[in-house]
């Protein structure tokens, strides 16, 4: 199929930036969206022009590096799919596809489609860990965890930190990401020692960079890993408890 791409190009953080239009001919439906960009980039390089900068790493939906606003939707038209796993068969011949970087005050654009997501690292540093003695892995059945709890924690742990939630949120809130990380650890026995400090510090670090939650639910729809909005309620409750009880 033949496609027209309108891609955001920006030389650097201070550049104004703007859309540029490219033609991609003979695109196969089996290509991923990132492969499409590779093809366009090869074209650009042959023409002696600057290739489009975009983030990517694993290309199998687990690292969270990729992330583009495609036709006004984070990670494009297919639900529960990261940009690297979005196939071109989702589009039809003759389509014009608009590609923008994630936008949020906390994510300055470095170049073209690449943004700086350091604030997510700050949130993780604030409490996204447990203080377990290291060494060989303990016997798995030593600490019993109820099935429901472990399932929920594992679902929260599926978050790959791609920041689609922030990108999709009208308030640029990072609640879904932070809640996934808080709930994942706060539910499990191993996460209990720092439970209250964790939620307090992670939420407060989050608030330094991001907006507040209006329960629009856009994040949940944008999430390639189907992290549930329920996690946000659990985080809000834990935060309140941490504050009021002064644990």
């Amino acid at each position: 199929m033949d496609l027209t791409l309108r891609v955001w190009r920006q030389r650097g953080p201070l550049d104004e930036g703007g859309f540029e239009t490219y033609q991609a001919a003979g695109v196969s439906g089996d290509m991923s969206f990132l492969e499409l960009l590779d093809v366009v980039n090869e074209q650009l390089v042959t023409e002696g022009r600057e290739p489009i900068a975009f983030d990517h790493d694993c290309r199998e939906g687990i690292c969270g590096s990729c992330g583009l606003m495609i036709d006004g939707r984070a990670h494009g038209p297919r639900a529960s799919t990261a940009t690297c796993q979005l196939h071109m068969r989702e589009f039809s011949d003759g389509d014009t596809i608009v590609v923008e970087p994630w936008r949020a005050a906390a994510f300055p654009i470095i170049r073209d489609l690449v943004v700086d997501r350091t604030p997510f690292d700050r949130i993780i540093e604030a409490g996204g860990y447990i203080s377990a003695p290291t060494g060989s892995a303990p016997e798995a059945n030593l600490i019993p965890v109820p099935k429901g709890t472990s399932d929920t924690a594992m679902d929260a742990a599926a978050c790959i930190g791609c920041a689609a939630c922030v990108a999709a949120c009208p308030n640029s809130a990072a609640h879904l990401f932070t809640a996934a990380k808080v709930v994942h650890l706060n539910l499990l026995p191993q996460g209990q020692p720092e439970r209250w400090r964790r939620v307090e510090r992670m939420v407060e670090t989050m608030e330094e960079y991001f907006g507040s939650c209006t329960s629009h639910g856009e994040c949940e729809k944008a999430c390639p890993k189907d992290i549930s909005l329920d996690n946000i309620a659990v985080m809000n409750r834990d935060y309140l408890q941490a504050k009021i009880r002064n644990r």
Binding site: M69, A104, A173, Y209, F210
Partner: peptide, 10 residues
Amino acid sequence: AARGAKYQSP
């Protein structure tokens, strides 16, 4: 303040 730059496409 957190939103900063708006998306330039719909």
